[in-house]
């Protein structure tokens, strides 16, 4: 039996391990955060910075909105048959003052979610291809 390899679905966007974090950048001149990373020019119209530092984003946030999907989306989304409904959550990060979307973690039910609820980041499998399991960041309600 061959062992399944695990790999990120996209390199350098998040850390793994017990307390995973999204990796963004912060402009060294104006302090704006960016996710996905902005590394060569600043999108603040009053800033011409070319200097950015990689920075982990807050692991926790509050739900801005959420929706469960009952139809399989078109390519390039990859899923293992049979298609299972999935939830997408939009999460507000307080310190960064931005919203980041992601799927809800496996097993999370739509009925458990509400706007304003606290959630945290996890890394979970997204799909499997040619013996490799590809992961992505997801959101899950904070326990307790």
């Amino acid at each position: 039996m061959s062992e399944t390899k695990i790999a990120p679905s996209i390199e350098g966007w998040y850390t793994t391990g017990e307390n995973p974090e999204l990796l963004g950048t912060r402009c060294k001149w104006c302090g704006s955060y960016f996710f996905p990373k902005q590394e060569t020019f600043c999108r603040n119209p009053s800033c011409r910075s070319t200097e950015f530092e990689e920075i982990p984003l807050s692991r926790e946030g509050t739900i801005w909105s959420y929706t469960e999907h009952f139809y399989s989306p078109p390519e390039p989304y990859i899923f293992t048959e049979p298609f299972e409904p999935y939830i997408i959550v939009a999460v507000e990060l307080e310190k960064e003052k931005m919203i980041v979307l992601g799927q809800a973690a496996q097993g999370v039910k739509s009925e458990e979610l509400s706007t304003g609820q606290k959630v945290e980041l996890v890394v979970e499998p997204l799909y499997e291809q040619e013996g490799t399991q590809y992961t992505v960041w997801k959101w899950t309600p904070v326990a307790g």
């Binding site: 929706t67 989304y77 997408i88 799927q103």
Partner: peptide, 25 residues
């Protein structure tokens, strides 16, 4: 491209996020 690949985020995803927020707010 990435929104479909990384999370299956379709156009109706956005419409649904706005709609849910109207319900909750």
């Amino acid at each position: 491209w990435l929104r479909f690949r990384l999370m299956g985020c379709t156009n109706p995803t956005y419409f649904a996020l706005y709609a849910r927020r109207r319900m909750d707010l």
